[in-house]
């Protein structure tokens, strides 16, 4: 179930996602190492399954991707939040935080951001935009 949630939070699309990066295994390991978050995770998973049963008659993992998405949208998007789902939103935020951590500390996550950590340079790297120090006219920048 955590695996499915992680995949939906950081999906594989044009680039690799949480699945390929093993984010769920990382979450399992961190939760197993941390008594303080075990209870919130257990309660959260139970909440989501109960929520899934009551609205679609099936456990979360047995729902179609579309159904899963429609359950998660109100939990993950502030503008779609529904009253009475505070516990679910809190749990989703927790899973999202762990997924982000697991993904972006993995080799695949580093590639996703082209993370420049731990490279070596002969001199301190300088801003390459000599003619536009205020960066008002960058070619890739969105307006």
């Amino acid at each position: 179930m955590v695996e499915r949630l992680a995949e939906m939070i950081i999906p594989s699309d044009e680039t690799l996602g949480a699945k390929e990066a093993g984010a769920a295994e990382f979450i399992d390991f961190m939760v197993a190492s941390d008594p303080e978050v075990q209870y919130p995770f257990r309660m959260g998973l139970a909440w989501l399954n109960a929520h899934s049963e009551s609205s679609a008659g099936k456990k979360f993992v047995d729902l179609s991707g579309e159904q899963q998405n429609s359950l998660l949208v109100p939990l993950g998007f502030k503008s779609k939040a529904r009253p009475g789902e505070e516990d679910g939103r809190k749990f989703f935020a927790l899973v999202r935080e762990y997924t982000v951590t697991g993904f972006y500390t993995s080799e695949i996550g580093f590639k996703e951001l082209d993370n420049p950590a731990l490279k070596f340079y002969a001199e301190s790297p300088e801003c390459p935009h000599k003619n536009d120090r205020e960066h008002k006219h960058l070619s890739h920048a969105k307006s």
Binding site: D13, T15, L72, G76, F77, K78, R96, E97, Y104, A117
Partner: peptide, 20 residues
């Protein structure tokens, strides 16, 4: 700038491809 970990991500909204 670009740090080792995108700390700002937890303050963003949503999930899925748009989030990524």
């Amino acid at each position: 700038g670009c740090t080792e970990f995108p700390w700002f991500a937890n303050a963003l909204d949503g999930f899925g491809s748009s989030f990524k």
